[in-house]
């Protein structure tokens, strides 16, 4: 959301916002701690995304690469996307049976607004891996999936 000098609030429509996010992801993120891209490069409505998080050092997640699936519904970005871990993980904001991220338990999605995006969710999840509640949580064997 952007405000013009005339006081008009400009809303970037869903598809154009997701195209911007895609262009951002293609530029990469310095250390590559997080990454994301379209599952199908020809997905006109940019619904299904793959995500990746590199476990942060100094935690039990260190050295692991977590795969996620992100789904942007028609209501995105009015509401946050569905985010699901493919790789098995033990985390306070992740449903232990399905791997679904619980929106109410992650600050990026709990305090969601349309200026946020996939990048902020992945970065928020990685930050959460470093929190006191998650840093030293016992983890399932590497390579398992939900």
């Amino acid at each position: 959301m952007q405000r013009t000098p005339a006081g008009e609030t400009v809303i970037v429509p869903r598809n154009f916002k997701l195209l911007e996010e895609l262009e951002g992801s293609e530029k990469g993120h310095g250390d590559m701690a997080i990454s994301y891209g379209l599952v199908d490069p020809g997905d006109t409505f940019l619904r299904e995304w793959n995500g990746g998080i590199l476990g942060p050092p100094g935690t039990y997640h260190d050295g692991r690469f977590y795969e996620l699936r992100i789904t942007c519904t028609d209501n995105y970005p009015a509401e946050p996307p569905t985010v699901k871990f493919i790789s098995k993980i033990n985390m306070t904001c992740v449903d232990p049976r399905s791997g679904l991220v619980q929106h109410s338990r992650l600050s990026a999605t709990k305090n969601w607004n349309r200026n946020l995006g996939i990048e902020q969710i992945l970065t928020g999840l990685r930050r959460e891996m470093c929190s006191d509640a998650n840093r030293r949580l016992r983890q399932p064997a590497e390579g398992l999936t939900f």
């Binding site: 405000r3 013009t4 005339a6 006081g7 008009e8 609030t9 400009v10 809303i11």
Partner: peptide, 8 residues
Amino acid sequence: MSGGSLPR
């Protein structure tokens, strides 16, 4: 909803 005034 676009608030404020749309440029002329």
